[in-house]
Amino acid sequence: MAILITGGAGYIGSHTSVELLNAGYEVILLDNFSNSKPESLQRIKEISSKDFKFYEVDLLNRNNVEQVFLNNHIEAVIHFAGLKAVGESVSIPLHYYHNNLTGTLILCDVMKKYGVKNLVFSSSATVYGVPDQVPIKENFPLSATNPYGHTKLMIEEILRNLYVADNDWSIALLRYFNPIGAHESGRIGEDPNGIPNNLMPYITQVAVGKLNELQVFGNDYPTIDGTGVRDYIHVVDLALGHLKALEKVMFSNGIMAYNLGTGTGYSVLEIVAAFEKVTGKKVPYRIVDRRTGDIAICYADPSKAKDKLGWVAERGIEVMCQDSWRWQEKNPMGYESKVMI
Rank of each mutant, 00 (worst) to 15 (best):
K37E: 15
Y176I: 12
I74C: 05
I92H: 13
L260V: 11
A2V: 00
V90Y: 07
P201K: 05
L119V: 10
G209V: 10
I28R: 02
N118P: 00
S170F: 01
K53M: 10
P147F: 07
D220E: 14
N198Y: 13
G334Y: 03
L260E: 03
V236P: 00
A300K: 00
Q42H: 12
L60K: 12
H234C: 07
E26C: 00
P332W: 01
G209L: 10
P284T: 07
P196C: 07
V283Y: 04
K113L: 13
Y55K: 03
Y11P: 02
T16M: 09
P141G: 13
V206C: 07
R230S: 05
I188G: 00
V208Y: 00
L199Y: 06
I47Y: 05
R175Y: 08
S49W: 02
G310E: 11
K137T: 15
A9I: 06
D109H: 12
K281T: 02
F251G: 10
G87H: 13
H73R: 14
Y299H: 12
D220V: 06
M154Y: 12
S143F: 08
P38C: 11
G228F: 01
M154T: 15
V110G: 04
I287H: 02
G10C: 13
I287Y: 01
L60D: 04
G181W: 11
P284S: 08
G8P: 03
P222Q: 09
L59N: 04
D301E: 08
N100Q: 11
K338W: 12
T126Q: 11
Y96S: 09
G103N: 09
L238N: 01
G24K: 08
C321K: 04
P93V: 10
Y163V: 14
T16G: 04
Y163A: 06
N35T: 15
A182R: 06
R315F: 10
V319H: 03
M111F: 12
V312S: 15
S267F: 06
R187Y: 12
I3K: 04
H242F: 14
V134E: 07
D237Y: 06
G10P: 06
V90D: 04
T145D: 09
A296N: 07
R315E: 04
L101P: 03
A172P: 04
